Simulated scan of single mutants.
Amino acid sequence: MLRSSAISGNVILEGAQVAVMGRGNTIAQGVRGLVIGDGITLNEDGIVTPRINGAAVQSSTYIANLTQTGTAAPTAIEISNNIGLVTWTRTSAGEYLGTPSSPFDALYTYVMINNVNHDHLTSAYINTDGNIVIITCNTSGHAHEDAILNNTTLEIRTY
């Protein structure tokens, strides 16, 4: 079930227990937390705010919708990017590598990717070289497959 407020434009999915102060925020299903600010996505329990005790919380973001067909590398339509250039390649069937201009530190990087096909799984993480790894596989047999990314949203935040 989807709950939304016409006044604030916030989207709060079913089961979320949150306090939201701002507009245009998206809250995932079943999470608990506090959101202060505009245009924020809360995908796990926690507090998201641009400042704590007056000190700015620094983060950089890369948000893109990825599409991949055939044996081509994924193409990215960037929604937000203050991290820098990310170059996408296909390393093998259902496996893709995003190489940022400056490698990410996995300890201070948040990665979230959505699934767009109910018969497939999509995962993303930062590898030891600081690159983005995306894997798509079939839920039956777990074989890695191409052409699953279809306007799939990837969000990366560094702190």
Rank of each mutant, 00 (worst) to 15 (best):
D129K: 15
S102C: 13
G70E: 08
L154P: 01
H144E: 07
G37T: 02
W88V: 05
A143M: 15
D38A: 11
G70V: 09
N151C: 12
I52R: 01
T152E: 00
D119P: 06
S102P: 13
N151Y: 12
H142V: 15
A64V: 14
G15N: 13
T122G: 12
A55K: 05
R32K: 11
Q29C: 12
T128H: 08
T67C: 02
T67P: 02
N10H: 01
H120C: 13
T109Y: 02
T139E: 13
D38T: 11
S59F: 03
V20M: 03
G22P: 04
G94W: 00
A106P: 06
T128S: 14
G15K: 11
R157A: 08
Y62V: 01
I79Y: 07
P50Q: 06
T75M: 11
E155Y: 04
T153F: 02
S101E: 11
T89L: 13
I40V: 15
D129Y: 15
N25M: 05
E145I: 14
I47W: 05
V111W: 00
R3I: 13
I52P: 00
G54D: 07
T69S: 14
T71E: 14
R90M: 09
E14N: 04
P100C: 06
S8I: 02
N138E: 09
Y62S: 00
N117A: 13
T49R: 07
T122W: 04
T128Q: 12
S5F: 10
D105H: 07
A93K: 08
V18E: 01
A16P: 04
D146Q: 08
L42I: 02
V18K: 01
S5M: 08
T152N: 03
T75H: 05
T26W: 00
S80P: 06
A16I: 10
G70R: 02
L13E: 13
A124P: 05
N53M: 09
I83W: 00
I36C: 04
I12F: 00
V86I: 15
A143T: 15
E78T: 11
L42Y: 02
G15V: 02
A6F: 14
E78M: 09
N115C: 13
E155R: 12
T75S: 14
S60T: 05
E145N: 10
